[in-house]
């Protein structure tokens, strides 16, 4: 019995430019989450290279990676990942707390961000008291509190009803227009369609690349859909 090494990704070569809105779509197990983790500097490829801006990520130690995530990257998750015991504003402050920003300053900044996403009156509420859409908005507020260059969203609307989902996507696109690079992983063709580009993945490879113009034309992949699959 030999050991078999499974590669979640194979021969992926891709460049995402600053300010782009890229969707990654594919069935579960296709490697889209692994790709997102590598883009987010949570994971390093066992082979190959990833450059974040000018920096080769493989040469960075764990602390430098943490620093990079803290300052340059915002994460949004399907299950929000708010700290349940902290109220909305304290959750938003969390990255600034890690960065060592003084309490008064981060409170001001967090309040500003909270206002900008329309949850000004919810600062003192804990996640359990918020609706799914509100939770995701708090999560977005947390992700942008350090003014990152890159925003990564893993199934951001997966746990939301359609209306909240549309609002969240609207919010993300607004951020994208303010020059934040946006990468959204989804299995929902409707969500994917909103990107400038779509990368379709299967078995660890990018099998199709569609540009905005190609998306707007009716395309067979969306008829198949992935709505039954979960990443």
């Amino acid at each position: 019995m030999g050991e078999q090494t499974l590669h979640a990704l194979e021969a992926v070569t891709e460049t995402i430019s600053a300010g782009e809105h890229v969707s990654i779509i594919g069935p579960s197990g296709s490697g889209k989450s692994t790709l997102l983790n590598i883009i987010g500097c949570l994971d390093k490829p066992t082979r190959g290279q990833y450059f974040f801006g000018e920096r080769a990520v493989e040469g960075l130690d764990p602390d430098e990676l943490a620093q990079l995530r803290l300052n340059e990257i915002g994460f949004i998750f399907q299950s929000f990942h708010l700290v349940p015991r902290l109220d909305a504003i304290a959750n938003i402050e969390l990255p600034m707390t890690l960065a060592g920003i003084a309490r008064a300053e981060r409170r001001d900044r967090a309040r500003e961000v909270l206002e900008s996403i329309g949850l000004g009156n919810w600062a003192g509420h804990r996640p359990a008291e918020l609706s799914g859409g509100q939770k995701q908005r708090v999560a977005i507020a947390r992700a942008i509190s350090m003014q990152p260059r890159l925003m990564l969203a893993d199934e951001p609307t997966g746990n939301l009803d359609t209306q909240s989902g549309v609002q969240i996507l609207g919010l993300l696109e607004e951020l994208n227009q303010k020059a934040i690079t946006l990468v959204v992983v989804t299995h929902d063709p409707e969500v994917a369609r909103r990107g400038d580009r779509i990368l379709e993945m299967r078995d660890g490879e990018i099998v199709r690349r569609l540009s905005a113009t190609e998306i707007s034309a009716a395309n067979p992949i969306f008829d198949r859909g992935y709505s039954g699959a979960r990443s």
Partner: peptide, 16 residues
């Protein structure tokens, strides 16, 4: 565990 994962994802160092 989820909270620890989140802290690390948003940039907490090992030391923190």
């Amino acid at each position: 565990r989820a909270e620890i994962g989140l802290l690390k994802a948003i940039g907490a160092t090992h030391r923190q």
